[in-house]
Structures are given as C-alpha cells and as structure tokens.
Simulated assay, not measured.
Amino acid sequence: MTPEITGTVQWRAWQDGVLPPVERVRDGLWSLPVPIPDNPLRYVLVYALEVRGGLALVDAGWDADISWQALNDGLTAIGYEVRDVKAVLVTHNHADHLGLAGRVRDASGAYVALHELDAHAMRPDLDTYDKWRRGYVGHLTEHGMSGTDADATADMMAPDRLFRAPRPDVLLQDGERITLPGLDLRVVWTPGHSPGHSCFYDPERQLLFSGDHVLPRITPSIGYLLQSVGDPLADFLRSLDKLTGYDVAEVLPAHEYRFRQLDQRLAYLARHHTERLAETLAAVTAAPGSTAWELAAHLKWSRSWQEFGLGQRRFALGETLAHLKLLAGRGEITEHGGEPEQAGGPAGPVRWTPAPPTANDR
C-alpha cells in the first residue's frame, strides 16, 4: 500500500529521475538532496534543522566531491554555510549517510553522533581491505556462492571498502534526548537495516526522521551480512512494532519523498516479511539441503534471477539469509554445514533443511 505522499515535489522528481530541489519542510527545517554517484537510490535527503547560532544535520551524504558540492550548495541556498553546522546526527553507519560527516566536522568543528552499536559494528578485525576481502569471500562461499563469483563480488565492492568511516564523537543510546539550543529530538533505536539504526523523533512537531528504517515505496534491505550478529530481521520486525507507539504527523525518510500514514506503512512492511518467510520456508521444504544461494535463485524478486547482476544477487543472498536465520530461530528449519564434505577436505557450504517433527507434530 502506498502511503499519502506529502513531498509531492520530491515525488515528481523521483518519477522523472532527477534530483529534487532544496525544500523548506517547516520553519527552520529544510531537506537538502545530496547525490549518490552511480547508485539507483540517486540521492540522500539530508535534513538541516535550525538551532541557535547555526544548524544540525540529520545524515550527511556520500563521500564524493559531487556530493560535497551539492551539500554546500544546499546550505548556501538556505542562507548558511558548512561552517555553521554544530552537529551531524547520523541515522546509521552506511556510507551514503555517514560518508560526508567527517568533512563536515573538519570544516565546522561540529560533533558527529551515531548509535553506539553502529560505532561498535566498525569492526577492528576488518580494518584493512585485505582482511575484509578474505572474510567477505569466505562469507559468500560459506553460503553457496562460487569462489569465482565471490571474488568478482569482492572486486565490485572495493570502492565501498575504501571508504574510511569517520569515528563518531558522541555515542547515542535508545531514548536519549538530543538537545541543542532550539532543538529537542528523541533517539528511537530501530535495529534491522543496521545494528544501531536509529530514527529521530521531534515530539513537538510530531515529525519522524526515519533514515532507511521506513521508506515510502522501497522495502528496506534487511540482510545477514559478514558483520551481522544475532537476528537482523527479528530486530527489524520488533522495531516496526515499536514505532506504532509514536504520534507521527509526517515521516521524513532519507530516500525518495516525505509521507504520512506511518502505521499503514509499518503494517505493510510487517505483512511483506510474513509472506516472505512463508515463501522461504516453502522453498526449504521443497528442496531440503539447499544453500542460501540456491534458495535465493528460486525466490520471487522484483526481476528474474537471470536478470540480476552480481550486485543484486549479493543483496538477494543477504536478504535470503536473514529470513533463513529468523526461521531457524523459530525452530522451523535447521542450519547444517561449515564442516568438510570429505575427510581432510575444505569446509562445505551451510545448508538448510526443515526441522524434524516434534512429538506434538506426530
């Protein structure tokens, strides 16, 4: 279900495939589109909030010269400069949100704030490209991708890995108040898309800066990745429930366009994953002993598996794994593998089977 669109200018720009304009959302609040080069998401919506003596930003944009220029041009258009920024409040640690935070800090002295779990997710054991590459290729082959495809996928990911994430100055926690002169926001921890993903809630104006947790059209990617721990999809579903308790007049997402009717969108996202879990369980039942890679190839996607390049397939693998991990946590399927398939040989891939029936099922 499509929610009520409030960012109609943004929506038209999205339909036309162009960058939307800088836009005043409320008194003292603007949206600044910052492009993401060579990415189907096209841009991040950075939000500039007026505080006494300057601005606070929600997210910062991708670390590229064209993005930096767009951010500076956007600030100029609303009568400010980057040196006026006092704080950068980052919804999560992905490169299109955290990327420019370091440049903003260097130019202005602003502090960078990020949830503590996303700061901790910048794993020191993956601090070099070589370490990351070995771990990443191992993760992909463990779940069924061929070594050739895994190597090619790692090569494709190299630009992202060369991004050096700026370390935050302030570690945020769930429920914390962010107070600057003229600004009062609440941190709402919404893990799933990342371990520490957080929305920011303005109770006075009933606005939710939703980052990537809730978008008006796209279903956010919830994947089990190399750095993942626990059960990201279960975390995401709990986070959807959590937001139903907030009185939200308008949602300000990081991509696409602003919208209303948050509860309807939350219900749709929960339904989508319920249906996807059922489809994934059916795939395991139909082909027990399959790897996540083999299962992903038989699930329904926005396009056929054959049309997907390696970039899309790696996302599909991560999302399939997230659904498999949740089903395993419920006891509906069982994870096997990682052991050598032949004595003395290399470890085989992880495979999935339906859980054996319990006494109550017989």
Rank of each mutant, 00 (worst) to 15 (best):
E81Y: 01
P35L: 11
A150R: 05
A77F: 09
M145T: 01
V170D: 04
P195C: 00
A152K: 13
R330N: 06
D16P: 15
T190A: 08
W305T: 03
V18L: 14
W62D: 07
D231K: 00
G7N: 03
H213R: 11
F259K: 05
A56Y: 09
L237V: 14
H97R: 02
R52L: 12
V350G: 05
D149F: 02
G102S: 09
A56S: 11
E335D: 07
R362W: 06
A152T: 08
Y111D: 05
E275Y: 13
N39W: 14
R217D: 14
A56V: 09
T91C: 14
T219R: 15
W301G: 00
P166L: 06
F163E: 12
D263G: 12
V170C: 03
V18P: 06
S304A: 06
L299I: 11
R276K: 15
V85Y: 09
I78R: 12
L32P: 09
D130G: 08
E116S: 13
W301Y: 11
P3F: 00
L185F: 07
G289A: 11
D149Y: 05
G135L: 07
F315D: 08
T148W: 03
Q173P: 00
E256Y: 13
D127V: 11
L98V: 07
G7D: 01
G74R: 08
H92L: 04
P21M: 02
E279A: 15
T320I: 04
I66C: 13
E341T: 06
D127C: 13
E23H: 02
R303F: 09
H197K: 04
L262Q: 03
P3M: 00
G344W: 09
H336K: 09
G61P: 12
T6K: 02
V18W: 15
A316M: 08
E279H: 11
L321D: 03
T358F: 04
H273W: 15
P253V: 09
G192A: 00
H120E: 13
G79I: 06
R186G: 08
A154L: 10
Y80I: 00
K242V: 00
R330S: 04
L32I: 15
V22W: 05
T179M: 04
S67E: 06
G223C: 09
T148V: 10
L29D: 02
P37L: 03
E4G: 06
D38P: 02
A286Q: 11
L71C: 03
L262T: 01
A297I: 00
I5T: 08
S239V: 07
R303E: 14
R303Q: 11
D59H: 14
I333R: 05
E332W: 10
T291C: 07
D241E: 15
A48V: 02
G211V: 01
